[in-house]
């Protein structure tokens, strides 16, 4: 006699705590991906590479000495590990961004994808530092001495969603600022943005590094949830999931990434939990990715901009703004900020 986990899992506290934590982590990453890809037009297919850098940095520096056969295990406290992860991902994003950001669209996409794979290969081959293909099966978590088991998981759920809230607040602030408008202007019409004084190269690099630093802050959350740093964890699947959620939720919308992640991961779980007789299990396993693909096709067929749209986010109802409009708005914002003219003059441009 056997059953799949089926509906009973829906009443399982552990299931929900784990799933909601994972949704929080993916939501944070996808919101950050939205900043650079949705608003900045930088199609990043290597987001998992930065996550890997942050995860490994955190794990390595917080490992107690002697636990693993590696050359560097200083045993730093958790807070120092988080700062180190943010610093390291920021530095790596800067170094990757310098050459990669010279390319645009699909070329940038290929370069970032390649960098992510390079990081994974480094994790495999720098065994003296990363423990090679075995990885680390022990990851330092905060509050371990204060809470037991389930309570700790609930606390980490709260921390994860606290971080997601912070990321949301950051992206909301960006979307309403001149910086955000400059990003969208740059995305829609780079020559126009350049002609209006937006320093495109610097803006792109700034954004890439900002996202890198923030991903470094999210990476430890992923490690606390997974408790395992291994090169296999950081395959392209993570990036594809984040991108699928972004497209589903609505590229360049503010809350779309969160909604997209929630819908995608919940849908994935529900498909997984469908009870089927043993003889149909192979079919069920094969149908699983098909069902997710079908969901994506349906959403894009009936809501091409995703569940939430950029127009709705930015209150653009009557007509879609032209790229020049967006660029103008960005410049107007800058002029206001710099005190070089009033808003009326800027609009008159």
């Amino acid at each position: 006699m056997s059953t799949l986990a089926a509906i009973s899992a829906l009443g399982s506290p552990t299931f929900w705590v784990s799933l909601l934590t994972l949704i929080g982590i993916y939501a944070s990453v996808t919101m950050l991906l939205n900043v650079e890809s949705g608003w900045g037009g930088m199609w990043d297919l290597g987001i998992v590479g930065l996550l890997a850098i942050g995860s490994y940095t955190y794990t390595i520096v917080t490992n107690p000495p002697g636990e693993f056969e590696v050359s560097y295990a200083p045993g730093w406290p958790v807070w120092a590990g988080i700062l180190a992860a943010m610093l390291m991902t920021g530095i790596v994003a800067f170094l990757v961004g310098l050459p990669a950001l010279r390319a645009r669209r699909e070329y940038f996409l290929i370069i970032t994808f390649a960098f992510a794979e390079v990081f994974r290969q480094l994790a495999i081959n720098l065994g003296d530092l990363t423990h090679g293909t075995v990885g680390f099966n022990s990851v330092a978590r905060p509050f371990e001495s204060f809470f037991q088991r389930d309570a700790l998981r609930a606390v980490l759920l709260v921390v994860t969603w606290g971080a997601a809230l912070l990321v949301y607040a950051l992206t909301r602030r960006i979307s309403r600022s001149g910086y955000g408008r400059a990003l969208r202007a740059m995305r829609d019409n780079e020559p126009a943005a350049l002609s209006l004084g937006i320093r495109v190269s610097r803006l792109r690099l700034q954004t890439f590094v900002l996202v890198g630093v923030a991903i470094g802050g999210i990476a430890p959350l992923y490690m606390w949830w997974l408790r395992y740093a291994n090169p296999n964890v950081f395959k392209a699947q993570f990036t594809f999931t984040a991108w699928t959620a972004l497209v589903l939720g609505g590229i360049a919308s503010r809350f779309g990434p969160v909604l997209g992640v929630a819908v995608l991961l919940l849908f994935t779980e529900l498909v997984e939990l469908i009870d089927v007789p043993p003889e149909l299990r192979n079919v069920h396993v094969a149908v699983h990715p098909l069902a997710i693909g079908l969901l994506l096709v349906l959403v894009l067929r009936f809501r091409p901009e995703g569940l939430l749209s950029e127009r709705r986010t930015f209150g653009e109802r009557a007509r879609r703004q032209t790229s020049l409009d967006v660029a103008m708005a960005a410049v107007a914002s800058r002029l206001r900020r710099l005190g070089r003219g009033d808003a009326v003059q800027a609009e008159a441009l």
Binding site: A9, T14, F15, L226
Partner: peptide, 16 residues
């Protein structure tokens, strides 16, 4: 066949 799948899968059935 992934570590993430193992964690998610285990948490689905752990209570049961």
């Amino acid at each position: 066949s992934t570590p993430e799948g193992a964690v998610t899968g285990y948490n689905r059935i752990r209570e049961e």
